[in-house]
């Protein structure tokens, strides 16, 4: 697999680490109460049958966190953006 890092260009899979679902959002309540929203954020993940937004880390490159949109059926990569631009 190849990922087109917005900073480094297309690079081989071995340079990246996978981190999982990019669509989950950290609750913004300060974290005082460990409620369901927090449990969902940390533990609950969709098993998408199709396009999936996921986080990859260019650890052997520029250290950028990337949001990669990938079709989990075909492994086709549909888009790559820097995570900092997504927030």
């Amino acid at each position: 697999m190849r990922i087109a890092c917005p900073y480094c260009g297309p690079r081989g899979l071995e340079e990246f680490l996978y981190h999982g679902d990019a669509s989950v959002r950290r609750p913004e309540d300060g974290g005082a109460v460990p409620d369901q929203a927090w449990t969902d954020y940390v533990y609950l993940r969709e098993n998408a049958n199709g396009p999936h937004r996921e986080l990859w880390y260019h650890h052997a490159g520029c250290h950028a966190w990337l949001v990669v949109t990938r079709d989990l059926r075909s492994h086709d990569i549909l888009g790559v953006t820097a995570a900092r631009d997504e927030a």
């Binding site: 950290r26 986080l55 880390y57 250290h63 950028a64 966190w65 995570a83 900092r84 927030a87």
Partner: peptide, 18 residues
Amino acid sequence: AAKVMQHMEFCHQVLAPA
């Protein structure tokens, strides 16, 4: 060492880019 660096990059770029 490497794991903490990666974690801090995550905290900054993904959770608190501002």
